[in-house]
Simulated scan of single mutants.
Amino acid sequence: MDQLPNQTNIDMNILKITPESADDFKVEQLKALPKMKTGTTTVALLIKDGVVLATDNRATMGMYVANKNAKKLHMIQPHMYITIAGSVADAQYLIDLLKAETEIYKLRNDHDIGVGQTAKLLQNILYNNKGYFQVGHLLGGYTDKEGGAIYNLGGYGSLLEEKYASVGSGSPFAIGVLETDWKEDLSAEDGMILAARAVRSAIIRDIASGNGIDIIALQKGQAPIEKRYEITDIDIRDNKIENKKKKVSKKKTTKSK
């Protein structure tokens, strides 16, 4: 991965301790990294033989709503999707990189790459450029070998396999819904409803989340199911979010070998 940006000018958020004598130490505060801004809500959860991922549609710049139709749910391969939080530029670069690397793997090996393998690849990129990419990702998908799988990846290279997870400024609200109502072997429909409710709970309370919900369900032997809900301030006020279905589409997918 020699084409990746290097980390030569990154300031670490640490204390530097230098020995002045055998019995004394001098402590110096180094310049801290800028705080990562994750103004968004993304969720992922396991369902029976698959996964559901969902995001809101609002992109912010500080207190300014920069875009009301931001795409935060992206396909890496037909059997695997990723959500993004944090820096849009960093996330878009990493998504393009993952798409290319997973496609090369498929061409060389004549079968799809696993979800866990892709998560490990992204972890290596993030860890080797520790703190350079200001992102938070949820990677989810299904293969016959792994079943449904969800991985939570942090900008410093952390990798956690989860049954359900949420990332972004609205995650404290969304995770409460998931924690309360998630259970094993949910149907695709029930999983999508739960994901929508989780994101909706964040949209109501988190000013950096809003304007709509994108959802996808990936399940064994089924084409991906995508849904999009547009949400206005009036919908939130009148509690009509569940009835504002905008689009339902199905896409063909290739089976993992």
Rank of each mutant, 00 (worst) to 15 (best):
26 K>G: 10
120 K>E: 05
118 T>G: 05
171 S>E: 04
13 N>I: 02
53 L>P: 00
191 G>I: 10
218 L>T: 00
70 A>S: 11
95 I>Y: 11
195 A>D: 01
39 G>C: 13
249 S>A: 03
131 G>H: 01
130 K>D: 06
210 G>E: 03
26 K>T: 08
61 M>R: 12
172 P>A: 03
191 G>S: 09
42 T>I: 14
118 T>S: 11
98 L>N: 04
155 G>E: 04
99 K>N: 12
107 L>T: 03
194 L>P: 01
100 A>R: 08
193 I>R: 12
143 T>G: 09
39 G>H: 08
222 Q>K: 11
163 K>R: 03
81 Y>D: 07
34 P>S: 12
231 I>G: 08
232 T>F: 04
76 I>R: 06
92 Q>M: 13
135 V>C: 06
182 W>N: 11
36 M>T: 13
2 D>V: 13
255 K>A: 03
112 D>Q: 08
252 K>A: 05
103 E>H: 08
34 P>T: 13
194 L>M: 10
5 P>E: 00
85 A>S: 15
19 P>Y: 13
168 G>V: 15
24 D>M: 02
239 N>G: 00
75 M>F: 07
25 F>W: 05
21 S>C: 13
196 A>W: 08
224 P>F: 10
228 R>G: 05
61 M>Q: 10
66 A>E: 10
255 K>E: 02
4 L>K: 01
79 H>C: 01
151 Y>V: 06
186 L>N: 04
81 Y>H: 11
106 K>L: 15
13 N>H: 09
10 I>C: 03
125 I>K: 01
210 G>R: 11
39 G>V: 06
2 D>Q: 07
141 G>W: 04
119 A>H: 11
200 R>E: 12
14 I>P: 00
242 E>Y: 13
196 A>G: 13
72 K>F: 07
87 S>F: 11
249 S>M: 06
171 S>D: 07
81 Y>W: 10
145 K>G: 04
180 T>A: 14
177 V>C: 08
248 V>P: 02
96 D>P: 12
114 G>T: 13
120 K>M: 14
12 M>C: 14
71 K>R: 02
256 S>N: 14
109 N>C: 06
90 D>S: 07
232 T>V: 12
114 G>H: 15
77 Q>R: 10
32 A>S: 14
133 F>D: 01
210 G>K: 12
223 A>S: 06
